[in-house]
Design a binder for these strands. Structure first.
Lengths: 249, 249
DNA sequence: TGGATTGCTTGACCTTGATCAATTGCCTGC
DNA sequence: GCAGGCAATTGATCAAGGTCAAGCAATCCA
């Protein structure tokens, strides 16, 4: 599964052996390119990029309280962010798929406010944030992209804050995954759920049992087929209808 | 109530008749000052500030879909942001008190993703965002402050996303108001609830009836006294204990 | 001044999803 | 192959909070 059905937009540049060896999935490279290809600036941006990993399933990318120095874009794999409440129960804050950026919420306190865990084999692009900020001063496109990225995340968090039903939450989660995979060139209807049921439950603020029941009902209704972690969506439009009030666009 | 018990940090500068006539409650002025007082830059920042209002109770500051041009800091009053779901029910996204900044979540789409309504008499400082971005390129302190502000808001939204009990939500809300008023020099234990019960309920994802019941129970337990919209907190520590798992710091 | 409106409170009942408990199925290592 | 362990499923029960309905209190305005 998760086979690319069409090329990610920038893959060609990296694959052609571009000497900058630019990370094809990074939002930042898109930002720069969309502003006109400034070779000097791209070169500088390249200097502050570090490809790190692979992390293996269960490895921590960072932990709550670690000093913040860099943001990172996921190149491959899935990263789960979470915090533990005082009684030790896990609260999942988000799942980050290839092309998505982790660590933006750490800028404020200069420390990571949550833990980040690799759910499978993960490769990252690490960007020194201080250096990036300096560079952003000279590259309006980069600065604007950073502002946009941050702004985008403000709304994202509010997504699952509403008081939605278990069905709506579940549908919204699946549609969101579908959209995100699709945007990166993967199949929108057939992908692997890289997280455990309990992770989905913690993220959606449901009990694991409820997740199980909702998925079963969706399957019985012909919306999808789910077998262990392999998911196939049969009726995306109906799923989107269910998710509409949560996703709002 | 809401009497200032100590001077906001920067009030002196404005009140002393500083020729810049700088908005004393704006986070940005703090940013600049904390970086060393660069008079030229402050002058430029001043140019792009516009004091607007007063808005009266029920006036809209902006509406969902309006083109985004500026962010704004609240100088006086309370602003409520909200969206309407397809069935016309209101979802309250946040309340903004003096010193807080509205519009940061509009950067991404270049349109306001929500409505903003004055709950009482509101005065704002408006900052042209494009001009501000240009200025930020030359003022590292301003750029950093913008990044911090945006980053801060990412976490804030996640606050009420957890699956907390009605008591925890209510306590967290009141403690948050207390902290925010206190940070601006108002009493932390005695203030006016500027929003209706239904607004609090919509914000906390509770029914208005539940808000009413919880407040009554808190009062019966000696935590606070609430009479119409006047609130007095009697046992802030115990309220903070209740709120601990929600606020986490 | 009095009636209407709006916002808030209180009580009775019901629904959703959590909890508890038992079972199944998959995967790993011996 | 079999034992052990973990994740997922399923069923039975329970409780938190929502919904509905009624009453009350303050404000508005003729």
């Amino acid at each position: 599964m998760n086979r690319a059905v069409s090329r990610p937009r920038l893959a060609a540049i990296a694959d052609d052996g571009d000497e900058l060896n630019f990370c094809s999935t990074c939002a930042f490279s898109e930002a720069c390119l969309s502003q006109g290809y400034d070779k000097a600036a791209l070169g500088e941006l390249h200097v502050l990029v570090e490809h790190i990993g692979p992390f293996h399933e269960g490895d921590h990318v960072f932990r709550e309280g670690d000093p913040f120095t860099a943001i990172a874009a996921v190149r491959a794999g899935t990263v789960k962010t979470y915090v533990l409440d005082e009684s030790g129960r896990e609260q999942v804050l988000g799942f980050f798929l290839p092309g998505e950026v982790i660590g933006l919420n750490a800028i404020h306190h200069a420390r990571y406010p949550c833990n980040a865990l690799a759910l499978d084999t993960v490769v990252l692009c690490r960007f020194s944030f201080p250096k990036m900020a300096v560079l952003a001063s000279r590259m309006p496109g980069l600065q604007a992209q950073l502002f946009r990225l941050l702004s985008m995340d403000i709304g994202k968090a509010a997504l699952l804050a509403g008081d939605y039903s278990a069905d709506e939450r579940m549908a919204a989660f699946l549609v969101s995954l579908s959209l995100r995979y699709s945007a990166r060139g993967f199949s929108p209807t057939r992908f692997r759920l890289t997280m455990a049921r309990t992770d989905m439950a913690n993220y959606l603020r449901l009990a694991a049992e409820t997740v199980s029941r909702v998925l079963r009902r969706f399957q019985d209704d012909g919306l999808l087929t789910v077998e262990r972690r392999e998911l196939e969506i049969h009726d995306l439009p109906r799923l989107q209808t269910l998710a509409r009030s949560v996703l709002r666009d």
